[in-house]
Design a protein around this nucleic acid. Structure first.
Length: 108
DNA sequence: AGCCTGACAGATA
DNA sequence: GTATCTGCCAGGC
């Protein structure tokens, strides 16, 4: 396995996402200083089975085509603002440091 | 060693 | 909003 600083950082950040919030692959990658959102997905596919992978969604606010059911169910359970099959990134998008506003739905 | 594939994102048309 | 091209990192063959 990778065990690289990048891989560890990805898993750590994903695992650090609070309940009821989500992050896009691009946001996670940029936050870690990585220029490849694919790495996030790759890491999730290999070692993401032990982290909150379901809190990571596509930039379109929609989970991976393989995880739509799983993602949607888990996110709904955690109180993530879902817009049909999509996540309301406007309220659910979480950035490290901006964790102040716990539940985005009330955020403001 | 090199080539291909893979949980994507962003820009352009 | 959809479709296409490119960029990028790591793993498998």
């Amino acid at each position: 396995m990778a065990r690289d600083a990048r891989t560890a950082a990805i898993l750590e950040l994903v695992d650090a996402i609070p309940r009821g919030r989500v992050m896009t692959y691009g946001d996670v990658a940029r936050t870690l200083g990585i220029a490849s959102p694919r790495l996030v997905g790759q890491v999730m596919a290999r070692d993401g089975h032990e982290v909150a992978w379901h809190r990571v969604v596509l930039a379109t606010g929609r989970p991976a085509d393989h995880l739509v059911a799983e993602q949607c169910a888990r996110l709904a359970e955690e109180g993530v603002p879902l817009c049909g099959r999509r996540v309301d990134l406007a309220a659910a998008r979480w950035l490290p440091g901006s964790a102040a506003r716990t539940s985005g739905v009330e955020g403001r």
